[in-house]
């Protein structure tokens, strides 16, 4: 990306770009120094932030969404850190390898979001291990002593993470927020990959689940019903999927529900994860 070219392109459309930014003019001139201050990955966010300010758009909403995402990533990250570090919980071999990979991803998401929030002019939340209670106030008492329970909670976290990001995507729409939206989507799909793998790990232990979500079936029990509420819808954008043609008949209810993951609102997600915060 050639920054000077971009600026001259903007000047063609908006000759007042520099006036709009007044105090920000120095920012443009000193963009090189921004580059030194923020990590390369955060450069698009720094740019987005500058233009949000130039055009009077606030980053408050965006920072709020990113901090919400950061909370969820801290939750997941701390969960896997503790799980992987708990002797005798996870069998050595493929399971431990996969959960270590996922732990590292969630940790990378934490760091990435912290950088993005800072670059956008916000203050990232910080959480420590002591701030979590992964038994959810006793709902999952054996989460760190029973591998099956640990994986069940992992599945609920991943599936819910997917739903949470999906629900927030529209709050990141708008020309000035494009880089934030895309980054959120790039995390969202990785959570989907995690969910798929965790589900296969559970299936290998006998849980009746597939990599995708069939109806509201969690393969867990009523403790996670709230995490799957609404996943059984067969109507998308006003189209009833089960009235559409499949291979030899209309698309089945199972396929119709599996083919679309459903969003959750922030309030729904907060209600689901609050018990996991000490």
């Amino acid at each position: 990306m050639n920054f000077q070219n971009i600026l001259s392109e903007i000047e063609k459309v908006d000759p007042e770009i520099y006036e709009r930014t007044s105090e920000r003019r120095d920012t443009f001139k000193n963009f090189g120094s921004i580059g030194k201050r923020v990590a390369l990955a955060a450069l698009p966010f720094a740019l987005g932030s500058i233009f949000q300010k130039a055009y009077g758009q606030t980053t408050t909403g965006v920072i709020g969404v990113l901090n919400f995402a950061l909370q969820l990533e801290y939750l997941e990250s701390n969960f896997y850190i503790k799980g992987v570090a708990t002797p005798g919980l996870i069998p050595a071999g493929a399971g431990l390898t996969a959960l270590t990979v996922i732990r590292d991803h969630e940790n990378a998401h934490v760091n990435f979001l912290r950088t993005a929030i800072t670059a956008a002019g916000g203050v990232p939340y910080t959480y420590t291990a002591a701030q979590f209670d992964f038994t959810a106030k006793g709902t999952f008492p054996d989460v760190f002593t029973n591998y099956s329970t640990f994986l069940a909670v992992a599945q609920a976290f991943e599936d819910t993470g997917v739903r949470a990001y999906k629900g927030q995507a529209p709050n990141l729409q708008g020309a000035a927020n494009r880089s934030f939206l895309t980054a959120a989507l790039q995390i969202h799909s990785v959570e989907g990959r995690h969910a798929s793998h965790i589900r296969m790990m559970r299936q290998a232990l006998g849980a009746p689940v597939k990599p995708w979500i069939t109806g509201v079936v969690s393969g867990i029990d009523s403790r996670t019903n709230g995490n799957y509420i609404g996943e059984d819808t067969t109507v998308q954008g006003g189209v009833t999927i089960t009235t559409l043609s499949g291979v030899n008949a209309n698309i089945s209810v199972s396929a119709a529900t599996e083919a679309f993951d459903e969003p959750l609102t922030k309030d729904q997600v907060v209600a689901l994860v609050t018990p996991f915060f000490a």
Binding site: V162, Y165, K166, A169, P170, Q173, L185, H188, S189, V190, E191, G192, R193, H194, A195, S196, H197, M200, P211, W212, Q236, G237, E258, A259, F260, D261, E262, P263
Partner: peptide, 22 residues
Amino acid sequence: QDAGYLTLAGKIVSVEARHAAL
């Protein structure tokens, strides 16, 4: 541009990610 379409695209992409992982 439309928030509803963005949500629909989101509903699909995570399923594609589940497929990809499997």
